[in-house]
Amino acid sequence: MNSELIDAEKFEQVIGTLSNRFSANRFQRIKTPAFERYDLYSKVTSSVNRKEMVKVIDPSGEVFVLRPDVTIPITQELSHAHRKLTSEHRFYYVQEVFRRSPDSAEKTERTQAGIEYFCKRSPEVDAETILLALETMKDLKFDDIKIEIGHTAFFHELITQLKLTEYQSDRLKAFIRAKNSVEIEALLTTLDADEAIKHAVTQIPRLYGKPEEVLDRAKEVANTSRMQATLSYLDEVCRRLTLHGFDEHIVIDFGLINRMDYYSGIVFQGYVGRFGKPVLMGGRYDRLGHEFDADLPAIGFACEVETLLKASDNQKIVHGKEEA
């Protein structure tokens, strides 16, 4: 049989598995337009890098983009009907997104699947969403599933006290993401700031591991009431996940600060065994609705079907070698 047909069959199987799981959790499937006005993304704070957008100019000279994101148009559409959230809304999608990558091997068009859960923030709801992410990865029969969980407020509180320039802030975020303690300490030595705060920042890359251990260590550097409240919040989320038997799959990572302009609370990434990058990413974005003059707190996550297939094939290859 033609390998492309086999790939197509696997592709549809993954989409079917995702759709079944999302539907079973009362999420309604929706679709957004393939073309959107460039202004929708250029004026909104989001995770979308404008340089990655695929732009198209229509005969009148207006600039459009091929859909680079799904969360933003869904939030905009919901804001037309609701200026304030009065009841929860559950949506899921499976559709193409288009983004250019510096890596020429990466395709511009990818199929993204995800959920958007518009609801008020609470440990119960956030744990429910992470639980859905874990169940989704289990449905896809992945091994060694891990969810790394962080929170934007913890890091934001520290860098606010440091009074960094935008350039310094960007560099510090990059060093923390890379867990590069040497460069973090070198940057901090150039700053005129309280030594206790500097020490707290150096600890962030080390705040990684089992929830109970990491949260205990984090208490030692939580020097504001907001940071302490964040730790209590994460502790409650992890407690709820443990009650569902997922304690072995949970990791706390306070260095998880990517896309922080987009998210405004808990953030998480899903990993599976023997695959070196996330297969799923998500978090809470309570402020995105403000871009459309609406109060629409929400949490969600997304995954690329192509990445899921690569991760699945990789595990099968490894298992095949082990069995041989």
Score class of each variant (00 low, 15 high):
E220Y: 03
T136W: 07
Y38L: 15
A133P: 11
V14W: 09
P211V: 13
G16L: 03
A113Q: 01
I30T: 13
I176H: 05
R287V: 00
V70D: 03
D286W: 02
L243V: 07
T230Q: 09
C303R: 04
E213F: 12
G265P: 00
V182I: 11
S232D: 04
K10L: 15
F175I: 01
V182A: 09
E304L: 15
M137E: 00
Y262T: 11
K179T: 03
L191Y: 07
E323L: 08
M227D: 12
S312L: 15
V44F: 12
L134R: 00
P73I: 07
T160H: 11
R100N: 05
M137H: 03
T71L: 08
Q269I: 01
K179M: 06
D126K: 01
K138P: 00
E106N: 09
Y263Q: 11
S181V: 06
D194M: 05
V44E: 04
Q112T: 14
S42T: 10
E306L: 12
I252C: 11
G61S: 09
V70L: 07
E135T: 05
G209D: 13
F64W: 15
V201S: 08
V125L: 01
G16W: 02
K55T: 14
V54G: 12
V272W: 05
F64S: 04
S181N: 05
E185T: 02
I30R: 06
G114P: 07
A294L: 06
A113H: 02
V237M: 02
D126W: 03
C119P: 00
L191E: 04
H156I: 06
E236G: 00
I145L: 03
L5G: 07
E248S: 14
K198P: 03
R110N: 15
Q28G: 02
Y208V: 04
L234W: 09
E291R: 04
P68R: 07
H151D: 15
E183M: 14
V221D: 08
Y285P: 08
L162Y: 04
F155M: 06
R226K: 10
Y167E: 12
D194S: 05
L158E: 09
L158D: 07
E322T: 03
L191V: 02
M281K: 03
L280C: 04
